[in-house]
């Protein structure tokens, strides 16, 4: 009888030990969990001043280089707001394109860069490429297909001609420029 009683007692003690252990670990875990504060989407996650960012594509190749006087990354959508952005897009052997504007916005993945306010796009001259400058406003750049688009008036100047129009799409890989309406151009006879 006494053996049966001591067996029961042992089981009871074991159960108590397990329950106590479970309670202790649960409360420890609860202490480690920081209560998540209410996220303010417009608050900065971090900011950087006089920064330079090299962004790579999936294969590790340089997609673009972005610098500016200030970058603020927002907590809400992880996008970034940039002051005085300078975006450099390489495409060797062609010369780099340098895109500047007053302000900028970069999507969380870095696939879309909005250049806001006055925008200037410059490509220096090279044997197979004449120097080219395009001025416009509010240009959206898609960094992977390497295209830039605006609905505003855009003006292109190069050595032997000028052209302007309202609405522009520039393909930085194929070197094509599409002007969507009200097109005016000037050619200088040689």
């Amino acid at each position: 009888m006494s053996r049966r009683f001591s067996g029961l007692l042992l089981i009871l003690v074991l159960a108590l030990v397990v329950a106590l252990g479970f309670w202790l670990s649960k409360s420890a875990q609860e202490q480690r969990v920081v209560p998540t504060a209410q996220v303010d989407p417009e608050a900065n996650q971090f900011f950087a001043e006089d920064f330079v960012v090299w962004s790579m594509d999936a294969s590790g190749q340089l997609k673009y280089r972005l610098s500016g006087t200030r970058l603020e990354q927002r907590q809400g959508d992880q996008s970034s707001h940039v002051e005085s952005p300078v975006l450099i897009m390489e495409h060797p052997p062609a010369p780099d394109w340098t895109l500047r504007s007053e302000r900028g916005w970069v999507s969380s993945g870095g696939d879309e860069v909005q250049l806001l306010g006055h925008v200037q796009l410059d490509r220096p001259g090279a044997p197979d490429h004449p120097p080219m400058t395009i001025t416009s406003r509010d240009v959206t750049v898609w960094t992977l297909p390497r295209q830039a688009h605006t609905n505003a008036r855009a003006r292109m100047v190069t050595t032997h001609r000028e052209a302007e129009g309202v609405g522009m799409t520039l393909d930085l890989t194929r070197d094509t420029l599409e002007l969507e309406s009200q097109v005016r151009g000037t050619y200088v006879p040689h």
Binding site: M132, V183, R184, T186
Partner: peptide, 12 residues
């Protein structure tokens, strides 16, 4: 030489 049009596609 000046040129005007509704739209244009320039292939450099």
């Amino acid at each position: 030489i000046r040129i005007e049009a509704d739209r244009a596609n320039l292939d450099d």
